[in-house]
Design a protein around this nucleic acid. Structure first.
Lengths: 300, 300
DNA sequence: GCATATACTTGACTACAGTCAAGCAATGCC
DNA sequence: GGCATTGCTTGACTGTAGTCAAGTATATGC
């Protein structure tokens, strides 16, 4: 890693933690411990179960219990029974709590505006654009691709997004029932794998490999969220799927795709897939691809 | 302030405090309270007086005393008498302390490298460039222009930088003694003013206004550090000098400049200065400018 | 129906960050 | 030389953040 790049990152870190960190904490804390403020903020307009707050903020159960009680004592939240399960407690904002959050937001906005205010309009635009760029790339740097249960909510959500997008982009729409299936049991080893890419716990891409014959697998359900397109996530997903394929003992990967998905076709070609004659009768397919997985270790 | 710009700043703040803040703290703290680590880091290879550390980090005297003692107990620093004044204590790193700091730096470098490592080379370059941009603009946003004592170290340093630059840029070099003078007593009200622009306590620009006749003032010593050029700091310094001039009761500002300083000449023209016939015999001047200060309040 | 797990509460505890005030020695000012 | 100031140390204290363990009520698996 070039030393000047590392140095720039560290310079950036120092300045930003000092400038941003200090402000953020200061404007969030209104005569209240920071932990309580964060909890209040996290509850949100819909209310939230203490269990979820605990998990999301990574805090101790006892600690959250106490913080919630303190907020309730201040009249900012109401603690009531939760959704169904009589054990969980749900925190809901009171009118006062909502006002408090509005106030916190206003202060944060003010601090951000004050920062921008010290610049000329052109510099403001440049700063905001550079921040957006840093934001996007930091998110990408935190990308994690992992095997997931195809029945998990995040996996289901991704697949739903994928279907919705196909329906939007295909001229005649898309009906999952008419397409070749990839059911849950086919997507767990040793019959296949479901990969989920996430950033900070938010799913942003998925992909599936499925064994269709000894040594031969099929790729399906390749989807990347709009918000992170153009950042090479599709390519990384494809690489991760090939690793899974090797672990499943596959030597050939196949896939079919629709002519409307130009960027996907380019991705496959770039990754070494060759177009071949149709090997199935998927009603939505216009192109069929194949790649032989060379060398590399088989099992991990 | 546009709401989407504010929102982008806040999105950036949230992500960055979470990603960067957490890492930075974690890698700095090595089985040692964070305060102690920061102090150790701040001491630096030359050692530092406790008084300066206290001032620089903005900490309580008793707190610093205890932290320093803890570091001494760990064998990381040696506490000895300071420079001259027998009251001040100077903290010097031991070999162990230096090793510890190297280790802290290595860990921080590693964290920064790991961040970059998750990206493609092109994305890395884009991230580093965007970070540098954010860094530059955040620094500019923190710019403060204030009147300063022309004899203060920061003011002296700026003027020295200015002279050095003139010497570099003028074909025949520059000798301050041959130039028209601007001595300390002429640079404090009501005979003049010395303005210093600083970012986070570091001087980055200076400028001077000096009364040369009733109602008439002269601008001199306009200098902007290389690291922050092209960010409109010269223009802001000029505006601040005009405010000072009005407060000194001036109605006309004059200045002379050298043909080698193209960007300064453009700045003056853009700010409403008109070129006039020579009004003095400065040996380094090729252009003479004048501006009448209209309207505006005189005294503040 | 019983064992186990989960959600939460409470009390007791630790560590860290920081403040305040008293006091001592060296320094600066007149 | 006297007196206020400065630099530092020490003891006593506060508030925040967070952990741990015991205990209660509810839910889940077999």
């Amino acid at each position: 890693m070039p030393a000047d790049q590392v140095a720039q990152v560290r310079r950036f870190n120092r300045l930003v933690t000092q400038r941003i960190g200090a402000l953020d904490d200061h404007f969030l804390g209104r005569d209240r411990p920071l932990g309580a403020s964060r909890l209040l903020y996290e509850i949100g307009p819909q209310g939230a179960d203490l269990r979820d707050l605990r998990r999301h903020l990574g805090l101790d159960a006892g600690y959250v219990s106490r913080l919630a009680k303190a907020l309730a004592r201040e009249g900012l939240v109401r603690l009531g029974p939760g959704s169904g399960d009589q054990r969980v407690r749900k925190a809901r904002l009171t009118a006062l709590g909502r006002r408090e959050i509005r106030e916190m937001n206003a202060r944060s906005d003010e601090a951000a505006a004050a920062l921008l205010d010290a610049l000329t309009p052109k510099q403001r635009e440049a700063l905001v654009a550079a921040m957006a760029q840093v934001h996007r790339l930091l998110r990408v740097a935190g990308l994690q691709i992992e095997r997931a249960d195809p029945a998990s909510p995040a996996a289901r959500w991704c697949v739903a997004q994928y279907f919705a997008e196909l329906d939007r982009r295909f001229e005649a729409g898309f009906d999952p029932a008419a397409s070749l299936p990839a059911d849950d049991p086919d997507l767990v080893p040793r019959r296949g794998a479901f990969l989920l890419a996430s950033v900070d716990g938010d799913a942003v891409a998925c992909g599936v490999v499925k064994v269709i014959a000894p040594g031969i697998g099929s790729l399906k359900r390749m989807w990347v969220a709009d918000s992170v397109r153009g950042l090479g996530i599709g390519r990384r997903m494809l690489e991760a799927l090939e690793v899974q394929a090797r672990e499943l003992g596959l030597t050939t990967l196949r896939l079919e795709t629709n002519e409307a998905l130009g960027e996907a076709i380019a991705l496959y070609r770039g990754a070494g897939f060759r177009e071949v004659a149709p090997f199935n009768d998927d009603p939505y397919a216009h192109h069929w691809f194949e790649k032989r997985l060379g060398g590399g270790r088989r099992q991990s």
